[in-house]
Amino acid sequence: MDLEIYDKTKTGVPDKHINLVKDILNYAGKYIKLSDNTEMSVTFVNNEDIQKINKEYRGVDRATDVISFAIEDDAEDDMPIILDEEMANEIPNNIGDIFVSIDKVSEQAEFLEHSYERELGFLVVHGFLHLNGYDHMKDEDEAIMFPLQRKILDDYGLKR
């Protein structure tokens, strides 16, 4: 997977946390069998920046922990592009972008009494699953997404 990481925080994200995010997202990608030509980005921000994003895109004027922006590939008015299999495999499949508030990672890890790493892993896997079409708005969707999320985190080694 081609993963771009952007650090827009005031204090900077330590390399060990950036490497954790890369590792767990690559692990999650293999777990759900994403193609190798998948690409996405993760941007680390502070509460004030994620609050602005949350207000602009969701109409909620407060900081949140993670926001995912999935790329919609199939708009109704798009003309389909027909490629042979070899050409199709060469074109990257961009699934979208995740924004994570490192302030919320700290706050929630302390509140939930688990490690910063567990909370960071949880949030990026949660956002990653949203980019891949998983949701939890309905009970039947939650019954699929949450166990998958926990299995990925546990198998990776970030147990609660």
Rank of each mutant, 00 (worst) to 15 (best):
E4T: 00
I5R: 00
Y6A: 05
D7C: 00
K8N: 03
K8C: 13
T9F: 07
T9K: 00
G12M: 04
V13M: 03
V13T: 05
P14W: 08
D15C: 04
K16L: 13
I18K: 11
I18R: 02
N19D: 11
N19E: 11
N19G: 00
D23E: 00
D23Q: 02
Y27I: 01
A28P: 14
K33A: 03
D36F: 10
N37P: 03
N46I: 13
N46Y: 09
E48H: 13
D49N: 07
I50Q: 08
Q51K: 15
K52V: 02
I53M: 06
R58G: 09
G59S: 08
G59R: 06
G59Q: 07
R62K: 13
T64Y: 05
I71M: 11
E72Q: 12
E72P: 00
A75H: 06
E76R: 10
D78Q: 14
M79N: 06
P80Y: 11
I82L: 15
L83E: 01
D84A: 08
E85W: 04
E85A: 14
E86K: 03
A88P: 07
N89P: 03
N93S: 11
F99N: 03
F99G: 01
V100W: 14
D103Y: 07
K104W: 01
V105C: 11
E107Q: 07
Q108V: 13
E110L: 11
E110N: 07
F111D: 15
L112F: 12
E113C: 04
Y116K: 11
E117H: 11
R118F: 15
E119H: 09
L120M: 14
F122R: 15
H126M: 01
H126I: 09
G127T: 01
L129P: 10
H130Y: 15
L131H: 04
N132E: 08
N132R: 05
D135G: 05
H136A: 06
K138M: 12
E140G: 03
A143C: 04
F146E: 04
Q149F: 04
Q149E: 14
L153S: 03
D154S: 10
K159R: 12
